[in-house]
């Protein structure tokens, strides 16, 4: 069995999760506590990947990333980076595609905390920054875990977007989900099954761990 697609999938998912975590923290904080006009617009844009067919998103990303159009040309000129049919392109697309899976749990976690926790920290002389890292984040561990796992899992499960902007270049953009599709098309069911089974088992084990950890966390915090 060729492990390259699996390895590529996990590299893509890890990198996407890492980048999104850094990106989503300030975004979630802003959405949870900020008072501003146009909130509905921002929330709608972030939520788009939830409902949009992946092929639609993939199609527009393909146009945007293509060096024959302004944005793609600009990226290539300034950063020397081609985003179509390349691994960096997949990462960028995955970050956009999985954005709501990271932002929403974090936002909900922050909003679920009593306002008084923040206020207590302020009146104890702590800045918004210190309050965020020392009080708010440690108390949404469960939301953080959920966000990380959902993002990772959603990226692992990506198919349409990857196919649209990545194609299936072995070692570059041919991730596990695409590999499964290829093997099935070639009527090579045992090979497809190998990839599918690995994804299936790993996904199940990860979710199982997450839920048992979350339940334990809840029991400690709110003993019945």
């Amino acid at each position: 069995m060729d492990f390259e697609p699996l390895w590529l999938t996990f590299r893509l998912a890890s990198l996407t999760t890492l980048i999104l975590f850094g990106l989503a923290l300030p975004l979630a904080y802003w959405l949870a506590y900020g008072k501003f006009r146009g909130r509905a617009l921002v929330e709608a844009v972030i939520g788009m990947p939830l409902v949009l067919p992946p092929s639609v998103l993939g199609f527009y990303l393909l146009l945007a990333f293509s060096p024959s159009y302004a944005f793609g040309a600009w990226i290539e000129e300034v950063f020397g980076l081609r985003l179509v049919f390349s691994f960096p392109g997949l990462v960028v697309a995955s970050v956009i595609y999985s954005l709501p899976f990271m932002v929403y749990p974090l936002q909900a976690g922050l909003q679920g905390l009593p306002v008084s926790l923040r206020e207590a920290s302020y009146s104890l002389g702590k800045s918004a920054w210190t309050t965020f890292f020392k009080v708010l984040l440690p108390n949404c561990k469960s939301a953080i875990l959920t966000a990380l796992v959902l993002t990772f899992a959603h990226t692992v499960g990506e198919f349409g977007v990857v196919l649209m902007i990545g194609g299936n270049i072995p070692g570059v953009t041919k991730v596990a989900s695409v590999a499964i599709y290829n093997e099935v098309e070639a009527l090579n069911y045992p090979a497809a099954n190998q990839y599918a089974l690995v994804l299936f088992v790993i996904t199940f084990v990860v979710l199982l761990l997450v839920y048992s950890f979350n339940n334990r966390l809840l029991r400690v915090r709110y003993p019945s």
Binding site: P114, S116, L117, E119, A120, S121, Y122, S123, L124, G125, K126, S127, K134, V135, P138, N139, R221
Partner: peptide
């Protein structure tokens, strides 16, 4: 700002930091 006001506040729900011990809660300020 509240950080500089020197007003001690006891909230209705106490607003203790759940992840810190009693000592750490008090020492937080």
């Amino acid at each position: 700002p509240p950080q500089v006001r020197q007003a001690g506040m006891v909230f209705q729900d106490y607003a203790l930091f759940p992840h810190l011990t009693v000592r750490q809660n008090i020492a937080f300020g």
